[in-house]
Design a protein around this nucleic acid. Structure first.
Length: 572
RNA sequence: GUGCCCGUAGCUCAAUCGGAUAGAGCACCAGCCUUCUAAGCUGGGGGUUACAGGUUCGAUUCCUGUCGGGCACACCA
């Protein structure tokens, strides 16, 4: 077997291979239905049902007025031969159960080892560009756990989409203009003058967190801060509110950048809301919207008739005081994304911003520049509830009481924090129990997975041979049920990446890795690897080396490290 | 009141565009280290998938309604 043959081996993309076969069978048996019925194959949940199942016969039964089991037999008869298929059975109401030939399954080990870090990557994106905007926190305070969820989900999404063949640009949008920034500036100014939040003079919408005091202190001490390559030196002049605002924003951006770096997240592009005003893009969009005929003047304000595009009421664009509401620069920003050539854009954000979706899309539709209706796409994550000492910690920037991302990284660790925040479906509420994550770190799933990887590395190190040559091993000895499970699990990996990318659901990676680790641990406990028989030894080592490769690739999709050693912790 | 999200084992969560007997972890019980890392493994109990209808060969999944939870409903962002 040569490397080039392994790359295109059907077992590396087995579902598509089977789907092709069944499509041909369908053409032969029922050409008139071949167009309406795309062939769907699914993994069987139980081993007695084989490895894959096809439900085509049951779907065709009604329109063709034939019994599903007859149709199943006809499809099987028309199926082109393949070395991948070991056995076919008709079961239940008309399922066609497919058993993959053991010899074909064994090929996946060599294929995975040869592909290395690229194993599992697919090409559904075909190199097309795609932009993901995430985090996009206001520069008015440190990142909290909610931003952490957005950061983890968004970054993992980017990694998954890259692995699925998309060329991904990561973007962060700063709302560095508007009322919240003015509140920030005022809060820092008050702190500079020695006024604290418990003072009656403190405004209701002022920021109360201790970090405001830190900003004020740094400003008075004439410190320098850097964000996005720009260095700002504080003047210390409390009466200069422009300088104060610039310093405060840069200070907080620097802090956010440091937190993101500690969370192993890197953005390609930072966009500033303020730039949309200074470059005239906001005005340009307003003019275009007025010209589109979807606006009207009422009560001294300018309105956009968003109800033309599915909103439940119209929205104000320009307030009677002449300033714009927040969604106007948002529309300008998204028009800019479109003009930069991103025909696919995904915005990952907290569900508390879901009402913006309709408005932004309505504004873009009103511009009538060819943007599709469902553009951009959104992935919304639900709120994170934080438990500390068994009690819910209320997240409120203004009250200054919340758990920062930095706290979590310091207390729980980057790996575990990323895993916990990314390992849940984003549409469900997440409970993050800090004490549990800290005190039970020995039972943390991320350690379970990393431990499986470290165990393999340890065995390979004790063997001391050349891992790079293992792909040439004779795999025919891999016949135990443990080995079959692992082979199938490896075969599933490319399909997993395809599904996770299609569903924009990176949490699937986390669950897969837990299952893979469980299979590995069972195998490890039941099997010796460094045995006398050279052929068996090499086959088993090749298998676990392939498993380690998949775990490393999978952990990388989550941004979690794959250590080669685990140092014991705790009292176990 | 309106819109969006959610409701699965005691707890935290899965379930691949509707598939066959709904799965893991934690917690609880009983076992496994003179052998490659016990942060591990093996076995056990635990369910009317909130509730009621509907669609069909088949529903945790889709539709309608009810109940419960979260979020959003400004000329705030």
């Amino acid at each position: 077997m040569r490397i080039s043959n392994l790359k295109n081996h059907p077992v590396s993309n087995i579902k598509n291979h089977l789907a092709d076969l069944f499509t041909q069978a369908l053409q032969a048996v029922a050409p008139e239905h071949a167009i309406q019925h795309a062939v769907v194959l699914e993994r069987s949940k139980q081993t007695q049902h084989g490895d894959y199942a096809c439900n085509l016969a049951m779907q065709l039964a009604k329109p063709m007025r034939r019994s599903p089991r007859d149709l199943a037999q006809a499809l099987i008869n028309a199926l082109p031969p393949s070395t991948v298929i070991g056995k076919l059975e008709i079961a239940g109401a008309g399922f066609i159960n497919i058993f993959i030939a053991v010899a074909a399954k064994q090929q996946i080990v060599s294929a995975a080892l040869c592909a290395g870090d690229k194993f599992g990557h697919v090409d559904v994106g075909a190199g097309r560009t795609l932009q993901v905007e995430f985090v996009s926190a206001n520069p008015t305070g440190p990142l909290h756990i909610g931003h952490g969820r957005g950061a983890a989900v968004g970054d993992c999404l980017c990694r998954v989409l890259s692995a699925a063949g998309w060329r991904v640009t990561r973007e962060f949008y700063y709302n560095d203009a508007g009322a919240q920034i003015e509140n920030l500036t005022l809060s820092v100014e008050l702190r500079c003058n020695g006024i604290t939040p418990d003072n009656v003079a403190w405004p209701d919408n002022g920021y109360r967190g201790d970090y405001i005091m830190d900003v004020a202190r740094a400003y008075l001490a004439r410190e320098a801060v850097v964000a996005d390559g720009k260095r700002i030196q504080a003047s210390g002049d409390v009466t200069d509110s422009v300088a104060l605002q610039q310093f405060a924003v840069t200070y907080l951006r620097q802090e956010q950048d440091e937190d993101l770096q500690a969370f192993r997240i890197k953005f390609d592009v930072f966009s500033l809301e303020s730039a949309l005003y200074t470059t005239g893009r906001v005005e340009e969009v307003v003019s275009a919207l007025v010209a589109s005929g979807h606006t009207y003047q009422q009560d001294d304000a300018l309105w956009l008739r968003t109800t033309d595009f599915g909103d439940d009421k119209d929205r104000v664009m320009r307030k009677s005081d002449g300033s714009y509401t927040y969604f106007v620069p948002d529309v300008a920003y998204h028009l800019d994304k479109w003009r930069r050539g991103f025909t696919r854009v995904i915005n990952e954000q907290g569900a508390d911003h879901h009402s913006t979706i309709t408005r932004v899309r309505a504004g873009l539709q009103a511009l009538n520049v060819g943007i599709p209706q469902g553009w951009p796409e959104y992935v919304l994550h639900q709120m994170v509830t934080v438990l500390r000492n068994g009690e819910e910690v209320k997240i409120s920037k203004r009250a200054g009481s919340y758990v920062t991302l930095r706290d979590l990284i310091d207390e729980v660790g980057c790996d575990a924090t990323r895993y916990f925040l990314a390992a849940r479906h984003s549409s469900t509420h997440l409970v993050f129990d800090i004490d549990l994550a800290k005190s039970q770190s020995n039972e943390n799933p991320v350690y379970y997975i990393q431990y499986a990887h470290a165990r393999i590395c340890s065995v390979l190190a004790q063997w001391g041979g050349e891992v790079a040559n293992l792909w040439q091993a004779d795999m025919s000895a891999l016949n135990s049920s443990y080995e079959q499970n692992l082979l199938q699990r490896i075969i599933d990996f490319p399909q997993l990446i395809e599904n996770a990318a299609a569903d924009l659901a990176p949490h699937l990676i986390a669950f897969y890795l837990k299952d893979l680790a469980a299979d590995l641990h069972s195998y490890y406990n039941a099997t010796r690897f460094l045995v006398e028989d050279e052929s068996i030894k090499r086959a088993r080592l090749a298998l676990i080396a392939a498993v380690a490769q998949v775990m490393k690739n999978g952990l990388d999709l989550l941004g979690v490290s794959a250590p080669e050693k685990m140092s014991h912790k705790g009292t176990m």
